[in-house]
Write a protein that binds this DNA or RNA. Sequence first.
DNA 1: TATTGTTATACTCTATAACTATA
DNA 2: TATAGTTATAGAGTATAACAATA
Lengths: 159, 159
Amino acid sequence: MLDDRPTDFGWTVSIFADAFARWARTAVAPDLPGGPRGYLVLDAISRGQPPSQLALAQRLGVDRTAMTYLLDDLEAAKLVKRRPDPADRRARLVALTAKGERALTRAQKQIGATEQRLLSPLDESEASAFRCMLERVALAAHEAAPDVGAMAPATPRRT
Amino acid sequence: MLDDRPTDFGWTVSIFADAFARWARTAVAPDLPGGPRGYLVLDAISRGQPPSQLALAQRLGVDRTAMTYLLDDLEAAKLVKRRPDPADRRARLVALTAKGERALTRAQKQIGATEQRLLSPLDESEASAFRCMLERVALAAHEAAPDVGAMAPATPRRT
DNA sequence: TATTGTTATACTCTATAACTATA
DNA sequence: TATAGTTATAGAGTATAACAATA
């Protein structure tokens, strides 16, 4: 199964992402609802002002219906709380509880260790450059994402 | 939702991988069974000697049961053919048909364009370095993968 | 009329088990 | 007894639709 062609880029992306996802899933506390995705939600909430559910969904690139289920579980675990947005009564602002902040701190350590394990083939300066480039690529992709309908809302019916 | 912390690594990996997967899915010919994963199968087969189904499954990091379904679809589309391994009659060797080779060539162009689009924030030397580091990380992760049971076979029952 | 959040449904994946034929 | 491949089932995850409340 070896030949002269370079390893396929699609393969490297697939293996890389799968490995991180799988390792993160085993590393993260098993009682964290949603696993690594739950961690991403807690992390996103912890940055700045309490976001709306829709803002969270767009940040993570998931549908708002999935965000409802995820937040239901996180709230049931007392890691987050929802309250109505005073400025827009349709929206709900999501904030971390004290327990949620502790869970986030714990998960950050666990995910950080996973990251180090994944990047261990690179030396320190390489890992730094890699992280930087990955971030630039991810940010650009995130900006461009909406046009492919990834987080398209349910099609409004035509009454 | 902005603060002083650097962007989370888990977030960048998630967005990066999702963007590539989503873009690849729309780029690849819609009649290619399995989408981008079907492409990875064709690509793996095209490298060297016809592999067994198990070798393919391990290469792609999927379960052998999923590989059966995938190959069923690819064979129904006349892109691959299975034949018994003369050296081990339990195993089946998978090879590309002429149609499969053409489909692979087409998909390679489509995936290549997706890769270029994804890496467009990087200049040429950066992209080259990024690809190289990503490959090193992916290869190491692939070596280390089996220990987490990602492709664990069904547990043999204890009669 | 459009948007935020929720719920219900169907569909797709995946994990697991169990079976066969070989080794 | 172990392995390669297949099939069946159930569970998780996701997409879609529809709805209520608000803008």
